[in-house]
Design a protein around this nucleic acid. Structure first.
Length: 105
DNA sequence: CATTTGACAGGAA
DNA sequence: CTTCCTGCCAAAT
């Protein structure tokens, strides 16, 4: 574990995301104490040591869509989230209903 | 130590 | 609603 506190916090937050809920990179960034560090969160995610332990699929963009996660395709991520009970609006997550932590925008 | 890159966000056109 | 540009932060080179 030779990672910075930011990355550690990010992992902790992401792991703490309850099933059926999602969080945006910006929200996670704010949670770890670095508001605006949404990109840094993405950096930590791809550094992701345990993808089986870290539900990075529950982390979505500010628009409720997915930018990365090239693991089986975005489709797999969407289906996975749907299966967990996340409300979808087309191909994007309905943050208004399935956002965790902070209220909607 | 300086520069570039990247799984982002928000505003403008 | 879609596309382009700018700003931010941390990690990698």
């Amino acid at each position: 574990m030779s990672h910075s506190v930011f990355t550690q916090n990010v992992y902790k937050i992401v792991e703490a995301i309850p099933q059926g809920k999602v969080m945006t990179y910006g929200d996670v960034a704010e949670k770890v104490g670095s508001p605006g560090a949404a990109r840094a969160v993405g950096t930590a995610m791809k550094n992701n040591p345990d993808m089986s332990k870290i539900p990075c699929h529950r982390v979505v963009g500010s628009d409720g869509g997915m930018n990365g996660y090239a693991f089986g395709g975005q489709m797999a991520k969407i289906e996975k989230l749907k299966q967990e009970g996340v409300q979808f609006r087309g191909l994007k997550v309905n943050l208004k209903l399935s956002r965790q932590g902070i209220n909607q925008k």
